[in-house]
Design a protein around this nucleic acid. Sequence first.
DNA 1: TCAAAAGTGTTATCCTTACACCCATGT
DNA 2: ACATGGGTGTAAGGATAACACTTTTGA
Lengths: 316, 316
Amino acid sequence: MTSDRHVVSIGLSAAIVAVADENPDVLIVKSGSDALPFGPFDPIAHRTLESGLRTWVGEQTYLELGYVEQLYTFGDRGRHTFKPGEGPRVVSVGYLALTRPTGEPKAPDTIWRSWYRYFPWEDWRTARPAVIADAIVPALQAFETAADAPALAEARRDRARLCFGLDGLAWDEEKVLERYELLYEAGLVAESARDGRTPADHAVRLGEPMMFDHRRILATAIARLRGKMKYRPVVFELMPASFTLLELQRTVEAISGVRLHKQNFRRLVEDQGLVEGTGKMSALTRGRPAELFRFRREVLRERPAPGVRLAPRRVV
Amino acid sequence: MTSDRHVVSIGLSAAIVAVADENPDVLIVKSGSDALPFGPFDPIAHRTLESGLRTWVGEQTYLELGYVEQLYTFGDRGRHTFKPGEGPRVVSVGYLALTRPTGEPKAPDTIWRSWYRYFPWEDWRTARPAVIADAIVPALQAFETAADAPALAEARRDRARLCFGLDGLAWDEEKVLERYELLYEAGLVAESARDGRTPADHAVRLGEPMMFDHRRILATAIARLRGKMKYRPVVFELMPASFTLLELQRTVEAISGVRLHKQNFRRLVEDQGLVEGTGKMSALTRGRPAELFRFRREVLRERPAPGVRLAPRRVV
DNA sequence: TCAAAAGTGTTATCCTTACACCCATGT
DNA sequence: ACATGGGTGTAAGGATAACACTTTTGA
């Protein structure tokens, strides 16, 4: 069953996320183009994929990972092949990891970057991102028109409508991967030209590109985190031991990319027993001092699916 | 980066599911113990993992797969190693695939089997499964008592309560994997003895065991399907072109393992625009003839997350 | 006539969302 | 004084879960 022709090598890539100053930062390795930290899986040294990941991430970034979750395994040919035919095929396993902010990363050539640099259409916190109306909608319209069959054109329009909340449809912040894949197929990201799917002289290049398929992995990571947050208390992996409720809200907003209703947000997290007051007050910046809260670990025992519900605010 | 020590071989395993006669059947290969269909990934012949899977599943089972979804990649050492130190390490990628029932499978040594044979505690359709009170609760209590620290004992009891809905907590049909893993760690399934985690003479052996980690993959598949069904119209991949609303309900019940409220179920699927009447009537078996419905493909264009909500019935 | 299943109508309850308002602090 | 953020109360609306009841067939 395991002859030579079945032999591959496994690469592990991690989207390591921290929230600082209301920005959802991801750890980026500058090696030519931006990349996620990645490394090979060594089956001799490591019992599981995850322990392999933790080890080399620790060595490479000097970070202790807290929460780690496997995302997806990609096996596309041609992804890592700079010189085709050389060496074994690389299958890559993508991971999401959460840490608390640590200031500047200690490893050389690594930096924290807001993920909205790679996905500018995903940040709806101040307003509907201008890039949607200015570049995405017209380009997707052209993509629709370029279809060689009416049914295909209609399918493309439907995808665009659902993905980007056009024609009055609601914006679904979890559809990060669907949006990226639509833009990729439509030839609107640099990666699709690089992979030979669109002519290299194509005009539209949305967002900052990344190495290999790392932007796809990052899109998967964002989508997973945005969804999981709602039914698992993973946000607290990104928070310090104590925090004000507004700080918590800003973190949830940074990740989800949408603004939330303040009063209802507070009520939800308190009523659900997700947090408890510490009695201490925050060293405030502006306004009335706020109480510091901490995560109530006990919810994990009490509620079957504790998480931060979004309580969306009406779009202005 | 890809020296010899990083070389592994990739195995693909598929939980292929069909619902017939109100049973959630999974395709089983009889090779000693029960196994899921599995085969090696050939990186030379196939561009993606999924195309590799479709090919050998077609060759091996003569089935055309419709819906296919990747579940998880497992890299645990010792899983496939019958003779340690021989051959490269196998990393296995698990898949969920849905098909319509086809009668007896055409491939030799393959059969359809209800997945509740492997997870008898998951079928709450007629009543709370007796095995929970008779075997699981006492065995988990013993597991709790055997803990060498009070904190560990408490953690074990909390897990048991949440997983199996004890002390009045609700049964969450989606926690299939959590339940299996708890039983595995507690040494209550044959696999944990086989993997050397419990003495081989341990008395309790819940459910039918499977080869390798296939029961874990199947648990992941069931959990994923039970969850996904609620926000994506995947049930219809398991239905014939036209069906009565009760047949649809019975299929959802077979998968979720819980009974649903009839009137509300009908209303939900109709109001959500998931189905439309065909005008034709069913060749009935008993009672008043029912209208035949078909899946409304258009919902995919209209609603952002169409799926069959469960509308649970009060537990009797 | 009864059992079994198809269907329809209505109500009570809870959760979500929105709105209105007051409180405490720094500039 | 006022801007900023903290914090509480409550009501409207929608979705859900439950109940009651009628209809149509086969045995």
